[in-house]
């Protein structure tokens, strides 16, 4: 499985070996507006799918990011502490949030691929 997978909450996940990079989509960052702070979990934390993974503060409000799949936090994007705007500028690249070790690969199958996510975005209007 390659490429990005997406959730209906506008998060993405990119599988890299046993691990997965998690972040928010370009649509999500545009909705949030200027991001001024990102609170990330401690490495080693275990999260179940749907559990709170991170909090993103924009100039408008705080928003939660939920884990798209269950896993263990391997690494977080420490660069966001000094430069949270990277999430706006490059959400799928330098603005990634968390690297997870995926504990239940079957959960990946429940996520949308890029075509399905595009169709979902269009249906949301």
């Amino acid at each position: 499985m390659s490429g990005e997978r997406y959730t209906k909450d506008h998060d993405f996940l990119r599988v890299e070996g046993d691990a997965a990079i998690v972040g928010i989509t370009d649509f999500a960052q545009a909705q949030l507006g200027d991001i001024v702070f990102v609170e990330l979990p401690a490495p080693g934390k275990r999260v179940a799918k749907g559990e709170q993974l991170a909090t993103i503060e924009s100039v408008k409000a705080a928003s939660e990011v939920y884990a798209p799949v269950s896993g263990e936090v391997l690494e977080v994007n420490a660069a966001l502490e000094a430069a949270p705007a990277k999430v706006n500028e490059d959400p799928l690249g330098e603005g990634w949030l968390v690297k997870l070790r995926v504990t239940d690969a079957a959960e990946l199958e429940e996520l949308m691929d890029e075509d399905a996510y595009r169709a979902f975005l269009e249906s949301e209007g």
């Binding site: 909450d9 928010i24 909705q31 949030l32 993103i56 924009s58 409000a61 928003s63 939660e64």
Partner: peptide, 12 residues
């Protein structure tokens, strides 16, 4: 992430 309506609750 919560829906867009929630996000903009701050204003007001």
């Amino acid at each position: 992430m919560p829906n867009a309506d929630c996000r903009e609750r701050l204003l007001s």
